[in-house]
Design a protein around this nucleic acid. Sequence first.
DNA 1: ACATTGACCTGGGAGC
DNA 2: TGCTCCCAGGTCAATG
Length: 272
Amino acid sequence: MPELPEVETVCRGIELKRPALGAIEAVVVHRRDLRTLIPRDFESQLKGQKIFRVRRRAKYIIFDTDDYSVLSHLGMSGSWRFANGSERLKHDHCHIIFSNGEHLVFHDPRRFGLIDLCALGQDEGTKWFKHLGVEPLDSHFSVSHMLKLAQKRTTPIKTFLMDQKNVVGVGNIYASEALFLAKINPLCPAGKLSSTSWSDLIKSVKSTLRQAIRHGGTTLRDYRNSDGEVGAYQRELHVYGREGAACRSCKAKIRCVSLSGRATYWCKGCQK
DNA sequence: ACATTGACCTGGGAGC
DNA sequence: TGCTCCCAGGTCAATG
């Protein structure tokens, strides 16, 4: 479910409450077998640690503690939420219990999510981060960089944009939305984009993601922030999920095609 | 190296 | 009500 704006929203929500949490009193793992196993010594390593920062890299949430960086990916259906008591819902797989009584709970029906641990600040060297591309809200996401990466690539630009080795954080919703805003056909081979098109696309990706963050992300079904609230960006979507509806710009019918097995929404009138 | 496909897992909605 | 089928915001391994 969650793309960059949703993950960013969760990070900010947790960071807001972080100063009041105190130290980790206990960690309870109910189910270890997520996308990979939660490390067997996860509970003992984190006990007594204090989280001093919550940050994001790509679609990963990172909790920096005294000695460790906890890496968490939400997969398609994962969430972290604050809970008061030790309530345990179906698919709650891990509770982190703080000295102020708050519980931070990882919930993930499909178990595509991930919780892992590395030494503090060593995240960039892990297998999860090693092959990640540039951050889309960073200055390194530039025309020259993307032109070079896309050189001779025949894969559709929409697929290229979603490949985390190129640029991170853009998933199925925001890829369609950014391409619509940039007026670029999602099927266009990545290597065929001119520098003008790349310039438009980079601006569109940045503004789409920033807007979505401002709206607290997109909730199509499951997504909730750490306080259990839904996002609001679903009301702003131009093409995603709107097959057959009239384009907000040219009134043509929004189309849906499958690219690399993912539903891809676009407007034939606007995106040449 | 690159492009494409299926697998991972569960739940919800559509159709019968 | 219940069954089957298809779909879902992500990533990775396997295949040409």
